[in-house]
Structure formats: structure tokens, C-alpha cells
Design a protein around this nucleic acid. Structure first.
Lengths: 358, 358
DNA sequence: GTGAAAGCGCTAACAC
DNA sequence: GTGTTAGCGCTTTCAC
């Protein structure tokens, strides 16, 4: 081929040492910035390295030091802007401390997550950030933790796993949002989530996601405190691709007793729900009120702009990476105390339901 | 701490070998699935490995084989849905072939890109996918190529660098879109891009991005072929954060001779432009026509839905990873021939300009 | 400060 | 088939 240096063996410390007329050890010390090296030797070595355009082999370095300066990040779906933003927070923070990020997608499959974690461990990453696909099946994470590898959970808690977890507490904000909908007069409030379950939702059911559990719990509490019974039949799990969400939305709105408000569990769902509503020729909020999790820019562009539950996603990414790196470097956890909280941003997509209007 | 195995040395082939009462070599062969091993020995070794919960050290493995099964991906901004989607295509494809992905963000800074490439090379990735921040400053990429490391470019070409490049040809679609706007009666067509330049745009200026060059070239050709002169004073580069885009948009629309159509170079810009238009109390397409690159779901949700230039982003990610892996594994490039092309999706955001109406 | 030599955990010759 | 022995490119004793 055209590349002239293609087949040439890579330059190693030994080559540099020879060129600089010093021992391999001295060359390595100068290049690796450790141990004692005289200025004179250092100069010669660095010059030789430059001359030969020597580049250290980080793999070899990692093998000796046991440090790879790499962290593994395991998320459900990088295409989802929620994770995109969180990942940005993680990579930004990691880079500042000299860490690289290996990113693995699980499609929210536990089996893929198990595999991901194993691969990352085999690659000897210095630590892991995982947004667990399941809050219940957590043996593999437990295993990571027990092996002593630093681990930080993002977005969701894992049952019985006592590791640092960066997540917003959903119960409170869900309670608040639901109360807001109830006060507007809604009684049939639908909730749509991708969470996979074997059977349709029933109150008290054990769910695989701490986030969704908390949200449902908050909704329920709001109903109860208002002396109403929770519209559990309006909960729709197993929302998959755009098509299935569309079907679900139609089902909700074309029912004999249609939902009067819909809460979308994330931005991807929201997109399909709003589209389905428009297709049906219904209007927000006149015909149906709408509320969604995550405050993406596009939510301000629709007519009306959408009422959302904003989460500090980027900041959580930053916090997760910060916490992990602190663990890796054996420093004490920052007394960040508070934890993160979401807030309800009232825009124009919630109004009184038709039935309640004069 | 609670973890009982924290400080324990990791299990190695040697440990497994001893437990299975065979030589290190035989254990390694059984574990690594290479060489000749009798069924009997294999069984004993695997059992012992299981028992000790042995896990191979991929770093050590990589050192010997010279293969890390890792590819490096360098993009401008993972938070940008365009790259989010492309990255998904890359990771999906990589995973299928047993590769992992190290992701680095450059913020479109060449210096960060240079650093990123160096780090990745030091980590001995098997290949690189880069969306070059600059089409001109490409020595570092040239260097990668010369060193013989497989390299695939995404989205943008790099001058004088003869490597496989996965990108849509922008000149044609830009020409077509501009002609569409011209035919609707527009003469002052603005184009907003984040591309950094020292001086305002003038026709013929050498630009740092092949994508933008092609787009501008296409616009210009459309003007020329219609016997009109290109509204080069309507080109706005250096659009940075949301605020600066807002300022630019206002400038364009509040000028004595305001633009009648705006073309947004990507989804992030589009978001801010549309928002600014709404803030000004102007309406699309009555007061201003709008066209943007990339077809994100939210573009169908606004009123009216937006006319966009759709690019097969995910597929390009898939193609880039496929091409890279093919290079890595020394197979011949797929005769994928065609290359990718974008298409104009006419929705509701383009209409005749006020001035041209009866 | 310096150098020789011994690893890190694995693969790969090479003999038997 | 199996075991012995060298490495891979570095860091790290340990003498001097």
C-alpha cells in the first residue's frame, strides 16, 4: 500500500533506550515520568523518543500498573436523548480527570447488560457506571461490587445493592405532578412506559424498575390523598417501538371512557404519543392533557408547548462520573448530600378535561 | 468494607492450571480455545476455571495478539442527536462482530481531536472512526493512516486523505433544496451553521468543512442556474450556543431587508432558530420559510411540521463500522457502491414569501 | 542516578 | 496432546 511505515514494528522503550544510549529502565523512567532520572538523561531520552516518534503502549502500561484509565458505561439506549445527555456529562467529567469511556448499549436487556459488565471487567476498566436494565435482577452487579471494582448506578436503584446511586427521587415529583392533574379535574390519568412486564399492571405489583415503581407509587398516593381511587387500568407498560406506542395511545383515547390525561415516561414515548394524538385529530390540551418526563428543547416548540418534568440529566452524568472517579482514586465521597430532584414545568399542555368544563 | 474478595489477587491461568493439575499452557489453550487439547483436560480446566470463577485478562491477551477488539469513535458532540443516532449504528454493528467502542467527544475542536486520536492509538484500538472537526487540518489523521491503523471517516471528508469516507454528498441535495426555495419565490435565503471561521462568509472562501462547502456550493449553483446572484450576505457561520443562534436569527429577521427563508444546518441549530422565530411572534411559513438538515421525530410535531433534509444517519453509522471492521479483518471493502444520499421531505414549513404574494 | 533482571497474564514457538 | 520456554512492552524491585 501507500503507507510506508505500515509493516514496521512499533517503536518501544528499548528502541528509544538504544538511541539515547541509556538502559531500558532509565528510558522508561524518563518516558513514564517516574523514578529518578538526571536532567541530562531525560533530555537525551525525550529527544530520541521525539526523533523516533515513540508512543507508549498503554496496554502494557495498564498491565503493570493495574490501571487502565478507562471507565465502562452501560446504558439502555444511547439514541435516547436522555442517555445522550447523561453520557455527555460522564465523558466530559471523565476526560477532565484523564479517563476514557467505553460505552455499551443494552437495549434494556438484562442479558446484554450481564454480557456488557463481563466484557468491561475482562478489559479491566477502572470502574463502571451502569443504568441497570432491571432493579431486581442484579446478581451481576452485586458480583462487580463484591469483586471490589468501583461501581456507580445511574438513574435506577438496584435492589439490595448498596452502591452509590445517582438518581432523582421520583416518588415526590410524581406525586406533585399527579396532584396537579387531579386538581385540574382529571380522574383517568394514563401512564405509558417501556418497562417490560409479563402481565398488565395491577396495584401492588412488583416492578422491575425502581423509577417506574416510584412514579406509580407517587401517582397512587396523590389519588389516595385526594380521596380517590387510582386509575390503575390506565397504566400501560410494555410500550415498545413507535408503532406499539401509537396503538396504545389510540386504545387509551378511543375507549368508551377515554383517558383525559396522558403521562409519557420518557422523551421517545412522548414523541410517538403526541404524534398519535395529532393523527387522531385531537388537540392538546382541549381534548387531552399531556405531561412528560424530561425537558427536551423540542417540547417548547409544539403548540402548545408541553408541560414537562425536568430532570438534571447532564448534571447527573457529571455526578456519576465524579463519584466513580472518586471511588477509583480512593478518595472519600463528596458530601454532595442533597441528591437530585426533578421539577414540574407548567407550560401549556395541561388543562381541565372536557367533562369537567362548564 | 463489606466486599470479602476485595483485596484478593485476581485469578490467573496459572491458578486454574494448578487446580486442574495441568500445565499453564494446556490451561491457557483450553481457556482460550486454541491449539490442541484433549476433551479430558479441557473438562478439568473449564471446571477449575468455573470453580475459581476465573476471568481472562483481556489486556494481557491483547498484548500478545496485538488485537484489542476495540474501536475508537471520535465525534464532535454525542449530545447532538445526529451523532447519537450514528453512534448507535456504530455500536450495534461493532457489537455484532465482537468489538467494543471507546467514545471521545471533541466539541468540534481540532486540538481535542488530535489528543483523542493519540490516546486511542496509545490504547491500541484496532481502528478508528472519526467525524473530522476540520476538513483541512488533517495531519493527525494522515498520520493514523500512514501508521497503517484502519481509519474510516464519517460525515465529512478530509482534504488529501485517501481513506474510506461514509458521508452523503451534500452538493446535490443542497442544490435541489435551494431550487425548491427559489421556485417558491425566495431570494434572500439564509443559511446558519456552527462552522467556525475567522471572517464572515464570502463566496469562494475556503471552508474548514467539506459538508458546509458542498452545501454552500449547491446553494450557489441553484442561484446561478436560475440566473440569480447568490445571497451570500445571508450566510451566517460561527453559530455557537443557543443564545448566539437566537441573536443571529433576530438579526436576520429584523434587518431592513429580512431573510425570507432560513436553512438550519443541523437539529440543534434548528431548535434555537424556531424558538427565536416564535419569540419574535412570527409564524412559519407565513412570515418566514424554514428548512433544516436531519429529520428528527420532533420535526413532525410542530405546527406546521417542518420541511427537512433527511439523512440516513443510523445507516451511515452501520456502514462506517462495517467498513472499518472489514479493514481491520483484512477483508476487501464491500462493493457498497452507491454511497448515501439525502432527500428533501416537503412538509409545511416552506411557502411563498410575503413579498411575492398577490 | 543507574542498570540488570524479574515480573504483569497471557499467547506462541518449539520440542517431545 | 502436552509441557517448557520465550516473549509482548512496560514497571518495578534490587543491587550498585
Amino acid at each position: 500500500m501507500s503507507s510506508n511505515s505500515s509493516r514496521r514494528r512499533e517503536i518501544t522503550v528499548a528502541d528509544v533506550a538504544k538511541a539515547a544510549q541509556v538502559s531500558k529502565a532509565q528510558a522508561a523512567r524518563a518516558l513514564g515520568n517516574y523514578g529518578a532520572v538526571s536532567e541530562e538523561v531525560r533530555g537525551r531520552v525525550l529527544a530520541a523518543a521525539e526523533e523516533l516518534s515513540y508512543r507508549p503502549n498503554e496496554l502494557a502500561r495498564s498491565m503493570n500498573t493495574g490501571k487502565s484509565n478507562t471507565i465502562g458505561v452501560v446504558v439502555g439506549d444511547i439514541e435516547n436523548p436522555h442517555f445522550g445527555l447523561a453520557t455527555r456529562g460522564i465523558t466530559d467529567t471523565a476526560k477532565k480527570s484523564g479517563y476514557n469511556v467505553i460505552l455499551i448499549n443494552t437495549d434494556e436487556e438484562v442479558s446484554a447488560e450481564i454480557e456488557a459488565v463481563r466484557v468491561l471487567l475482562d478489559k479491566r476498566v477502572d470502574g463502571l457506571i451502569v443504568a441497570p436494565a432491571s432493579s431486581i435482577e442484579t446478581e451481576h452487579l452485586q458480583h462487580v461490587h463484591e469483586s471490589g471494582r468501583p461501581l456507580v448506578l445511574l438513574d435506577r436503584k438496584a435492589e439490595g445493592l448498596d452502591v452509590e446511586t445517582i438518581a432523582v427521587s421520583m416518588a415526590e415529583i410524581s406525586f406533585e405532578s399527579t396532584r396537579y392533574l387531579l386538581q385540574a379535574g382529571h380522574r383517568r390519568i394514563a401512564f405509558i412506559s417501556t418497562l417490560k412486564t409479563e402481565t398488565p399492571y395491577r396495584t401492588g405489583m412488583v416492578l422491575d424498575s425502581s423509577q417506574i415503581s416510584e412514579r406509580l407509587e407517587g401517582m397512587q398516593r396523590a389519588f389516595t390523598e385526594s380521596g380517590l381511587s387510582f386509575s390503575e387500568d390506565q397504566v400501560r407498560l410494555n410500550a415498545g417501538d413507535a408503532d406499539s406506542i401509537r396503538t396504545i395511545t389510540r386504545g387509551l383515547l378511543l375507549a368508551p371512557e377515554p383517558a383525559t390525561a396522558i403521562v409519557a415516561s420518557d422523551g421517545l414515548i412522548a414523541l410517538s404519543v403526541v404524534e398519535a394524538i395529532q393523527e387522531l385529530g385531537l388537540s392538546i390540551p382541549d381534548d387531552i392533557s399531556f405531561l412528560m418526563y424530561d425537558d427536551f428543547s423540542w417540547t417548547r416548540l409544539t403548540s402548545p408547548p408541553l408541560t414537562v418534568i425536568a430532570q438534571p440529566v447532564y448534571e447527573m452524568g457529571v455526578a456519576a462520573a465524579g463519584a466513580l472517579i472518586r471511588q477509583i482514586e480512593g478518595r472519600k465521597p463528596a458530601a454532595n448530600g442533597a441528591g437530585f430532584s426533578a421539577r414540574l414545568i407548567r407550560r401549556g399542555s395541561v388543562a381541565m378535561p372536557r367533562t369537567a368544563r362548564v
